[in-house]
């Protein structure tokens, strides 16, 4: 394992000082590989924190272009970026945030055909999606390959968060057995994905470091309107079509 440079020791000084991280923990972060799928309200924020924390390899996957209506919450993008490919703008901004991190920008629509290739080389997958059809594709492949999957979603002033450790915790299909009807346009206030995207990055870092208590077997419901955090115990579904395939 390579050591940290003088510059890295200075850059990550405030987190290296945390009991439970230290230089060894920072090296684990440096040697980790994370995919963030969907670089919008959730994925934009979580990718910024992961890159800032020094995750060595961050793969960002999206198939959209920046729209004016993204700018109330997707803080990676500016007015001048409207119309440009999200992954290209995001990669440039993330590289300027931390040039030590390798960013791989993938401009592809996630499907059952490419998901194995897209996430097969990472340690953790972070959910930045805006629909359950794609989330289920990601969930199923993460469970199959044994890759931790940090699920996040938002609506209005609310958010949801769940950490899925294949073989150990319920998966997304245990929580939501059928894809719910998709709302074409979801109402969202910017800080809601800010909160959930930040917590997704936090959970991913904890999974990498194997410290603390991850949000396992629980769904976090963030109620921004009343400023309350609720956790709901979630159990594995005996009828889950995805989990039941794990030996």
């Amino acid at each position: 394992m390579v050591n940290l440079t003088e510059k890295e020791l200075e850059r990550y000084d405030r987190q290296i000082r945390i009991k439970g991280i230290g230089v060894d923990g920072q090296l684990k972060i440096k040697n980790s590989r994370v995919a963030v799928i969907g670089i919008g309200g959730l994925g934009g924020i979580s990718s910024m924190y992961l890159v800032a924390a020094g995750v060595g390899f961050v793969k960002i996957i999206d198939f959209g272009r920046v729209e004016l209506s993204n700018l109330n919450r997707q803080l990676l993008y500016s007015e001048e970026d409207v119309g440009k490919l999200k992954v290209e703008v995001a990669a440039r901004k993330l590289e300027s945030l931390n040039s030590d991190v390798t960013i791989e920008a993938v401009n592809e629509y996630v499907s059952e055909d490419n998901i194995g290739r897209l996430i097969g080389d990472v340690d953790v997958v972070v959910d930045g999606m805006d629909n359950f059809k794609t989330r289920f594709i990601i969930n199923d492949k993460c469970v199959e390959l044994g890759i931790p999957f940090i699920h996040g979603a938002v609506y209005s002033f609310e958010g949801r968060l769940m950490t899925i450790i294949p073989g150990e915790t319920p998966c997304l299909r245990c929580l939501i057995p059928e894809p719910p009807p998709e709302h074409e346009i979801v109402p969202v206030i910017g800080p809601a994905p800010g909160v959930i995207g930040s917590l997704e990055a936090l959970e991913a870092i904890k999974v990498i470091l194997k410290i603390g208590e991850s949000l396992k077997n629980k769904l976090l419901v963030f109620d921004g309107l009343n400023l309350e955090f609720h956790t709901i115990p979630i159990e594995k579904s005996p009828n889950c079509p995805t989990c039941s395939k794990i030996k």
Partner: peptide, 10 residues
């Protein structure tokens, strides 16, 4: 009694 529907936004 609390009703929690799924949310999809990102």
């Amino acid at each position: 009694v609390v009703f929690v529907p799924p949310v999809a936004g990102g």
